[in-house]
Amino acid sequence: MKKRPIVLSALTLALGLGAASLAQTTVLKKGLKITLLPKNINNPYNVTETQGGLDAAKEIGAVAKVVGPSDAGASSQVSYINTAIAQRQNALILAANDANALLPYLKRAMQSGVKIVTMDSDTAPEGRTIFINQANSEGIGRAQVQLLGKLTNYTGDIAILSATPNATNQNTWIKWMQEELKLPKYKNMKLVKIAYGNDDDQKSFTEMQGLIQAYPNLKGVISPTTVGISAGARYLSTSPLKGKVALTGLGTPNQMKQFVKDGTVTAFQLWNPGDVGYLATYAAAALASGQITGKTGDTFTAGKLGKYTIGANGEVVLGPPYTFDKANIDKFNF
């Protein structure tokens, strides 16, 4: 009988330790080492995206850095992944140039204890724990076609000016564009070409020129890449077909402002890429701090963006795309 208080005390102590352990997981660790690896470091979109990540890291007391290649090749990111492993980074945030080519290196990183979060452009799920999707992929693809349909009165030949042929996000969006085009209201619209500018300004400019020359009945072009849409707009702005061929897609307000104001582009869409990087950094910190494991239903708070829930296959969706036009474009600066 005299031993019962001792047993109860031990049980109470154990419960107390358990509660303390749980309490620790609700706080983000300070001094986390986080690497941000964009597709390439010269792309204005990627610069804005990673700056959002750096801003989030500053808020949570993490040590973050941006590294990356100058091109968007499938293997160009490998050395940076290996460096993150060697430097014992707590987390690596990656916008993947290829869905599968990086898998062996990312798996090695995870085995070494590096938490992997992809943003913007995903790998196969086994290469990461969480994917920060800028918007629902189906919604993006369908919205692009819906917008172009309105701009062309749902008639004529159309084309797509994409980034690289193996870009995960581009190909997923294009798949949904093609699905949207199957609907009856698009029966008078025909997709005649998918061109690739390789996320290179001059290549995209040349591809846009080629589309105009090859398809005299072209009425509209969708370029779901910030490099492609700005290069395409630059070509159209000095072309006799300015205002006659509708160009839309995904671009940043700052790079597209002049083309909206001079009538080259009526409307285009995007999200705030800085918010993508910001959300990805909070997710990575939550993983590295033990707040979440990446399973479906896990929740975490991302600073000014609020609370998010992890969906199927580790996907977290930032929000729906936004349409920019002459009436609102001056309200944005990124």
Rank of each mutant, 00 (worst) to 15 (best):
M1G: 12
I6R: 07
I6C: 08
S9A: 15
L13S: 14
L13R: 03
L15V: 12
L17M: 15
G18Q: 14
L22M: 15
G31I: 07
E59C: 09
V63N: 14
V67P: 05
A86R: 11
I93R: 10
A96P: 03
N97H: 02
D98T: 06
L103G: 13
R108L: 04
V117K: 02
T118G: 08
T123F: 04
P125R: 02
G127M: 00
A135N: 13
G139P: 03
L148K: 04
K150Y: 03
K150C: 07
L151H: 09
N153Y: 10
A163M: 04
P165V: 01
T168L: 09
T172S: 09
K175H: 05
L181G: 03
P184M: 12
L191A: 02
A195M: 01
A195F: 01
D199M: 01
K203N: 13
L211D: 01
V227T: 08
V227C: 03
A233W: 03
L236Y: 03
S237E: 15
P240Y: 10
K244D: 06
V245H: 06
A246K: 07
N254L: 07
N254V: 11
N254H: 01
G263D: 07
A267T: 06
L270V: 15
N272W: 02
P273D: 11
Y278N: 08
L279P: 00
A286C: 09
G290L: 13
G290C: 10
G294S: 09
T296W: 05
I310K: 10
I310T: 09
L318I: 07
D325P: 05
D330I: 12
N333S: 10
F334L: 13
